[in-house]
Each structure stands twice: as C-alpha cells, then as structure tokens.
C-alpha cells in the first residue's frame, strides 16, 4: 500500500515537472496518469504494486471534490448577478454534451456488449 502511494505521488511529481518545465497547458496529474499507464504497458511497473493504493483512492474519488465545490460560496454574489447565463448554460450544456457524446459513441460502437453483466 505504501509503495503504491509512493509510486502514485512519484508519477504525479514527474508529471508536474514536465507540465511546468515545458509549459504544457495539460496538468501534471494527467501527464502523470499517462506516464504511469505507459510504464504499466512497458512492464516497468507491475500492476499489483499500485493496485491497492489506486483502488483505495478511486473508491473515494467523489469525496476529494467536496472542498473545491464548497468554493462556490465565494462566488454567490457574481452568480447572483449573472445567474441566468451561468446556471442556464451550465444546465442545458451538460445535457447537450451527454446526448451528443452518447449518440456519437452508440452509432459507432459495433461490438456486442458482453461486459455489462458482472
């Protein structure tokens, strides 16, 4: 477990270094995810080294968004002033995106679903 966390933090650090060093607009943790995936595929890292730590973090993923969400309270005034464009665009656009994405993927997905039932 500790080894897993150390590796996850190491890859995030590596990603941050690349993101900041090369001034890429992609955040370090996403680059870190790509690097870890590449290392797993290349066999440099074994899946069982990082499985436990990653399982623990991902099963509580939703929790980690809470503090950022509470930040909305600072913007109550701005949201109150421009509530129609902010709330309207956020709501409608969320459903538009889901419909467009789902439909495009469904049209192009010819493979039979076999993994639905687990």
């Amino acid at each position: 477990m500790v080894r897993g966390f150390a590796l996850l933090l190491f890859f995030q650090f590596l990603g941050e270094t690349i993101s900041r060093g090369l001034k890429i607009p992609i955040p370090g943790n996403v680059i870190g995810m790509g690097l870890l995936l590449a290392s797993l595929v290349a066999g440099l890292i074994r899946a069982e080294w990082v499985e436990d730590a990653s399982e623990l973090l991902l099963s509580h993923l939703a929790l980690f968004f809470v503090p950022a969400g509470v930040g909305v309270m600072i913007y109550f005034e701005l949201i109150g002033r421009e509530w129609l464009p902010i709330v309207g665009a956020t709501f409608i656009s969320t459903f538009v995106v889901m419909a467009v994405t789902g439909w495009v993927a469904e049209r192009l997905d010819f493979k039979e679903e076999s993994s639905d039932v687990e």
Partner: peptide
C-alpha cells in the same frame, strides 16, 4: 475551512494518476 479542506483536495491529484490502473487492466 480550506486550511483543512486543502488536505482532502490534495488527494485528487494522485487519484487522477491512479486512473491509469483500471485503464491498464
């Protein structure tokens, strides 16, 4: 609030890295 909240937020970073594991499997 964020004096403590930031420690919870911090875990979002390694969680994104951790997504590589289910993708790999």
């Amino acid at each position: 609030y964020m004096e403590g909240g930031k420690y919870v937020l911090f875990l979002l970073g390694p969680s994104v890295v951790a997504l590589a594991v289910p993708l790999y499997s």
